[in-house]
Write a protein that binds this DNA or RNA. Structure first.
Lengths: 345, 345
DNA sequence: TTGTAAGCGTTATCAT
DNA sequence: ATGATAACGCTTACAA
């Protein structure tokens, strides 16, 4: 007789029950609520589990209890460091709990997001974490009917679907540009890539600050829909220089771009911060390492990830210690690239 | 009466069946094997699904069919760009298939890997992708009994658990160092962080090359167990300089470190490649952007991710077009930091 | 092409 | 503290 590739006839609760000489439900209890079972049974069950190599069937658990430990996480990119850091925070907090992260990569597509949301919902997840606040109407209604806690992360805005944690990108960008103005820069450019709604709001913040200072000039805005990269920062800056050779500072919507601008400046022997000020966004580790170090906006990505999990776990336990909408803020880290007197490093 | 928070009484196959005026199994068929069902039924089912907003219950599917679409992926870090790129490749290839990625973060811990492996196995995954070839004995036997295709990625070595895709880190490092020797550097240092077994093999490759050239000197080896970073590259190089101010080239086990070394060299006005050659490892995008651009070892991370999925999907379908052990190789990209005559960029 | 019946492995419910 | 029984929602036989 041929055997199917996957036979092995997995060990079930019943097998363990037989070996421990108790009923299946008792084994189930011994495993989930040991305190509800006698010391003796607990020991026999443990021994049987060990001996038989019993592994619970999650599908059966989920079906019978109609609850899972799945925490659905939807992010727009797996290679963007911003989201790696958020993910890191999420995994930190999930560590040691009953939750399992199920990751979905929307690739910055609203349609892909809807598709993934449907897949996730079919698993009746324990909770859902989605990036940003620009979901499509369809996605919003899917989320609203999800029957589980939902956290929108990275930004805060009006009308949360459920809970929300992040900060105002517009204000953060404005603060960064106010810093450039305060440092005496006057022809301040905006360099931005992948102009999604979030990036757009950073541009709005730039405009806010420059208009307030009477310095706004649209010819100083250099953007592209292409995804952000180091090389692109250099290219955008090169473009900008050809149009506006008099530019004296650059606010980049991303540290990658800022580093790229710095390299391009080095190539052209443009001194930073003397002839050019540079400010990035996110406080990636590299910004502390460059020469000169880069001024940037500190964003609390790990905190966002960690607290998103806390909010969900708390809500599920009925003891969420956090507000439903949490603004984690940001800070402008003034470093050498905008004129801070720099020590050895 | 109180209602439980999660009621809503989800729409099931039976509801759809009633609405479409057919039996449950027919709906199931219409959904999974539309060609096995009449045009008319197909339409009615589709309409009912749409109208009722039916979402299949994956747990029930998995339980009834004893197979899932879960592709378990175990990586040691979510923030390390090497693995982000592999993941990107995996998601590319998974896109549009029935598979769902379930990600596990081992944080470079063998114990954590075992723990995650047990969790994954309890879901009877369709396939498993694990990083590296240095699993513990326990993990190896768990994998061997997994009853599903398993691919070890990033490295190749003897005794694959099942399938394998990667390249020889030792040979890659040797080739990079041979390049440095060929370029005329003589006091070539090794800078390495997080000295895990894989990194250790890169060090072995360095030793191979330098010994072959009669240039090996252990005082030129600078390593640390700390995780790799830009800042750390600078710090390790600073240390190295204090011991061996005559060093004339650095092979870094990682591009992050190499970039950090470059920044430190800039800070100290050490000219690259004139007074110092620098070679990295991985070909991260930044290495093409720095000034001067960085010589590095090109590794095919996305290819590895994509093909790992292909191997699993192929094996499951009984048509795996790839060998069980696949060496994707590497290339040394000679750039400006080791003396290549560089153009404008 | 469609339907019937019997599980899949677990947990909820109600007894004992 | 422990157990019997009936779900949970779906799919795999096998029939018709």
């Amino acid at each position: 007789m041929m055997r199917k590739p996957q036979d092995h006839k997995a060990v079930t609760l019943l097998d363990v029950a037989a070996a421990a000489d108790v009923s299946a439900i008792t084994v189930s209890r011994a495993l989930r609520k040991p305190e509800k079972v006698s010391e003796d049974v607990r020991r026999r069950v443990a021994a049987a589990v060990e001996k038989l190599g019993y592994v619970p069937n999650l599908a059966a658990q989920a079906l019978a209890s109609s609850r899972t430990n799945v925490l659905g996480v939807l992010i727009p990119s797996v290679t963007n460091n911003v989201f790696s850091d958020v993910l890191h925070g999420i995994y930190q907090e999930v560590q040691g709990t009953r939750f399992q992260v199920q990751l979905g990569n929307t690739r910055y597509s609203a349609l892909e997001e809807e598709k993934l949301l449907r897949i996730f919902l079919s698993q009746r997840p324990a909770g859902l974490i989605v990036s940003g606040i620009d979901q499509s109407d369809v996605s919003r209604s899917l989320l609203a009917e999800a029957n589980c806690p939902v956290v929108q992360i990275m930004e805060i805005g009006p009308e949360p679907v459920d809970m929300m944690i992040g900060f105002s990108h517009r204000e953060a960008a404005r603060a960064a540009c106010e810093h450039l103005v305060a440092r005496g820069y006057r022809r301040i450019a905006f360099v931005g890539a992948r102009m999604d709604p979030r990036t757009q709001r950073r541009l709005d913040g730039y405009v806010d600050a420059l208009e307030a200072a009477g310095l706004f000039d649209e010819t100083l805005v250099a953007t592209t829909p292409q995804p952000s990269s180091f090389t692109l920062g250099g290219a955008l800056f090169a473009d900008l220089l050809s149009r506006r050779p008099d530019v004296d500072a650059v606010f980049c919507n991303n540290d990658d771009l800022a580093v790229g601008v710095l390299f391009e400046a080095q190539r052209r022997r443009i001194t930073v911060p003397g002839r050019l000020g540079i400010c990035g966004f996110n406080d990636f580790e590299i910004t502390r390492s460059t020469f000169p170090s880069l001024t940037t906006v500190v964003t609390h990505r790990e905190t966002i990830g960690r607290n998103a999990v806390t909010m969900i776990a708390g809500t599920l336990a009925g003891t969420n210690p956090l507000p439903r909408v949490l603004d984690v803020g940001y800070e402008v880290a003034a470093r050498a690239s905008t004129g801070e007197v720099s020590g050895r490093r």
